[in-house]
Design a protein around this nucleic acid. Sequence first.
RNA 1: GGCCCGUUCGUCUAGUGGUUAGGACUCAUGGUUUUCAUCCAUGCAACAGGGGUUCGAUCCCCCUACGGGCUGCCA
Length: 470
Amino acid sequence: MNTPRVRFAPSPTGYLHIGGARTALFNWLFARQHKGQFMLRIEDTDLERSKEEYVDQITDALSWLGLNWDEDIVLQSNNKSRHEEMVAKMLDNGTAYRCFFQKEELDDLRLASEQKKEVFRVPETYRDLSDDEVQELLNQGKSFTVRLKVPEGETEFTDLVYGTIKVQNKDLDDFIIARSDGSPTYNFVVAIDDSDMNISHVVRGDDHLANTPKQILVYRALGLNEPIFAHLPMILGSDKKRLSKRHAATNVQEYKNKGFTATAILNYLSLLGWNPDSDKEIFNQEGLIESFQFDQVQKKSAVFDEKKLLWISQQHLTKMSVRDAMNEIYKLNPDWGDGLDWNYLKEIVKLIKDRSKTITEIADMSGLFFQELLKYDKDLISKIFSDEAIAILTDFKSALEGCDTWNRSEIELIFDNLMAQHVVQIGKVMKPIRVALTGITFGPGIFDLILLLGKDICLKRVRNLLSILD
RNA sequence: GGCCCGUUCGUCUAGUGGUUAGGACUCAUGGUUUUCAUCCAUGCAACAGGGGUUCGAUCCCCCUACGGGCUGCCA
C-alpha cells in the first residue's frame, strides 16, 4: 500500500463531540501507523449554521487530544470555483442535467406519492432534454438545479469495516449536485474534495454509509479515482440513542474539564467499536498506533459508558509520574498551588495521585493542604466526636505540643501511646484525628498526612476543631 | 413506504458447526490495607424470536421482531 492520506472533515456547526473525536482518532491512528498523512478539512458550506468560533473550538479540541494534522487546514468554502467547474464538466459530459422543477412542485409531488404510499422519484421530465429545449427554458428565465443522471445497473463498493455493499441504482434518485443558486451539495463536494486532496481512505461515521454509492457515482461521472471507504459504527448515549446534545456530556471539552487526560479519553474511545485482539485494555497513543486494525472494528454501534472511562482514567493515573500529573493539573488550573513550594506540592500529589480517578480529583483533594484551617461538616462532626473521641483528640493535641522531633516513628509512637492510654484499637484513634486534620473520613495514610501537613498546621487544626466542639 | 446496516451478560467485547460461551467495566460478597482507594479472590449476569440445513447450531441460510442510517435545493 502507498502511504495513506486520510482526513477528518467536521462541519463547524458545533463543538467537537465524542463521536467526532473517535472518527478523528481512527483516521489519525491509521495515518500514523502507516506513516501517512492525516488531514483536516472544515466543511463550512452551510453558511447558515457554520460559525468561525466552532472552527477554533474543534481545532483546539483536536490539538488538546494530540490528534495533530498534517498540511494546512482545507476550508471547503475555498473550493467554490473548483466545485462549479466540476458541475459544468458534468453538465458537459452528459452525466448531469438541469432540472427545472421548482422546489414547491417537487414538494407537492412528494407529498402526493407519500399519500398514495408510493416510492417517490423525481420525474424524468428534464432528464433527457435536447440542447434547444434547455435553452428555451433558460431563455424563459426558469431557475434550475443540477442533478446527477444516475446510470442503469448497480453500484458496489467494499468497505473496510462493513464488507461489500451493493445497491441497485434504481433505488437511487437523480440527486441534486448544485442548488438553484449554483451552490453545490454535500454528496457532490465531498467526492470532489476528497479526490482533490488525494484522499486514499475515507474513514467516517456510518451515517454516511448510505450516501457512499451516490458519491461513487460522482467519482465515476468525473473519472476520478475512488478512495477506499471505512465506515465506523455510531456512538450512542446510555439510552441507546445517537449521542446528541440531549445527553449528559458529549463535548470533548467537558471531559477535559472533568479532569480526564487526552490519553485516557483516546484510550477509551479506541475501545468503543474496536478491540485490540488481546485482553489488554490500557494503551497510550503509541500503543494504539501500533495495534489499530480496521478488521477489528465493530459493525455494531456502541454505548458510551463513563464508568469505564473513569476506570481507564484511574489506570492511567497510577501509571503516570508525579511530575506529569502535576503538569496535567497545571494545564487544567494554572493557579493550582500558587505560591507554594514545588517540593511540597510534589509530595502532596504523590500522596493522592494513586487514589484518584481524575486530575480534578487530585486537584480537589490537594486543597486540604493549601489552607491553615478547615470547614467541617456539622453532621459528620457530631457523628464522629463522642466524648471518647474528643478525649483522644485532646490527648493527641497535647502529644503534638510535646513532640520535638518530626518524623514518622515519632508520630507512630504518639498513636501507640494514645491506643494504650485509651485502651482502644487504632481505628478509634485514627478516625477523629483524620477528621480533625482533613474534614473527611478517607484519604491518604494518616502518618503521611500528618508528616506532610507539619506540626504547626496539625496543631492549629486540632485546636480549632476542639474549640468548635466546645 | 423504499433501500442499506446491525443484534453475545446492564455496558464494552472475545469466540466456535460439538466450549462449563471467555475477558473487562459496573454491582455484590470476602480478604489485604491504620481510613479510603488500590490490589486479590469469589459471585451475579448474555448468544432477540421462529423456521430450516445438519447427527448436532450461538456460529450457515431464510423469515420476523427490534434498533440505527439514508431516502432534503442539511452536512
